[in-house]
């Protein structure tokens, strides 16, 4: 069972703010979803390898060659707050 406190903690970790009614609702819904997930416990998977990707081959590698890129100008243009080619945020202590 997930408690309301856990839901609050998770929201904080995910940088989300939930209203009182949302907290209530999500606590119930998350518990319902996780109750369904309990079904997986029926399966013994001790000797089973985990699948991260359906097809596992070796990761491709890139050569160490510089490519110039200028998207930053367009990104700064659409950024919510910037100054002197920096992104600007409230003071980080």
């Amino acid at each position: 069972m997930i408690t309301r406190e856990t839901v609050e903690k998770i929201a904080k970790l995910a940088r989300l703010q939930l209203s009182e009614s949302d907290l209530e609702k999500y606590t119930g819904q998350l518990n319902n979803i996780l109750a369904d997930v309990e079904k997986l416990k029926e399966l013994n998977t001790d000797a089973i390898e985990a699948t991260t990707h359906a097809v596992e081959v070796a990761n491709p590698l890139r050569e160490d060659e510089v490519k110039t890129n200028t998207v930053i100008d367009a990104v700064l243009e659409i950024s919510p707050d910037h100054e002197a080619h920096f992104f600007r945020v409230p003071k980080v202590l």
């Binding site: 990761n59 491709p60 890129n69 998207v71 930053i72 700064l76 002197a84 992104f87």
Partner: peptide
């Protein structure tokens, strides 16, 4: 500032990492 950047290292939507062999 921010001149050695691209869509990948700026963390734009849709970008993917490709590993440097070196």
């Amino acid at each position: 500032p921010n001149t050695n950047t691209c869509e990948v290292c700026l963390g734009l939507p849709g970008v993917l990492p490709v590993l440097n062999r070196k």
